[in-house]
Computed example of a mutant assay.
Amino acid sequence: MADPQAWIRSANVRAAWVGEVDGKIVGHVSVMRPQGEDAVSMWIERSGDDEEHVAVLARLFVLQEARQHALGAQLMRAATSWAQGQGIRLVLDVMAKDAAAIRLYQRLGWTKIGEATHPYGEGQLMDAICFAAPDA
């Protein structure tokens, strides 16, 4: 990635959190304004919510060496709690190949709301699964 700070500091970020271990930042998650994600349109169609009441959980990562600290779950809970306090439903798209992430979302009560195909590279496609956060 040419400019990781620009990627993290996008103008579409509504809120963000970092995870630390021993004073070192080792994880991150953002809540983003919708930008045409499949999960957003699926949730709006399913729930009748408008786009003002939906946001995307995005940019979730935890460094490999810090994954034993359950920071991914902590970051997701922080984002979900914030969104619920704002009256916002979080949704996300995850690549179908990311089995560990899917298990985490399911363990935290997220509900599968559909499937999509994401283009990438030069004409390649990747299957994705769309989830919505649990009710408050």
Rank of each mutant, 00 (worst) to 15 (best):
S47P: 04
G87Q: 09
E65H: 10
R67H: 07
Q124C: 12
S47K: 11
A66I: 12
I113C: 03
S41I: 14
Q124A: 15
A39R: 09
A66H: 00
R33Y: 09
L92H: 01
G48W: 05
E51I: 15
G27D: 01
S10N: 09
L71P: 02
A79Y: 01
R103P: 05
L125V: 07
A6M: 14
M1Y: 12
I129P: 04
V29C: 03
R59Q: 12
V31D: 00
V13H: 03
D38M: 12
L57N: 03
I8C: 05
S81Q: 15
K97I: 13
T117M: 13
E37V: 00
G85H: 05
I25V: 13
L63G: 09
V54K: 00
R46Q: 14
A100T: 08
T80L: 07
V21K: 00
M126C: 12
Q74H: 13
V40W: 05
M1D: 13
Q64K: 15
A136D: 15
A96N: 03
L108A: 01
E45N: 14
G23K: 02
L57S: 02
F61K: 06
A66F: 04
A15Q: 15
H28L: 04
G72S: 11
M95T: 03
A99R: 10
M32E: 10
R33H: 11
T80I: 09
Q64C: 11
Q5T: 13
D50W: 08
H53Y: 03
D50G: 09
E65C: 09
M32K: 01
D93N: 12
M95S: 13
Q35C: 13
V21Q: 03
A96R: 04
G48D: 07
M95E: 15
S30Q: 09
K97Y: 13
A6E: 13
M95I: 07
A2N: 14
L125R: 11
R14V: 11
Q84F: 08
A136I: 05
E20P: 04
P134E: 02
I113E: 06
P34C: 00
Q68T: 15
Q86K: 07
F61P: 00
P119I: 06
A83L: 05
A132Y: 01
I44F: 08
Y105M: 09
V31S: 00
Q74N: 13
V91D: 04
A132G: 01
E122M: 06
H28V: 02
A73K: 10
R46P: 06
S10Q: 06
I88K: 02
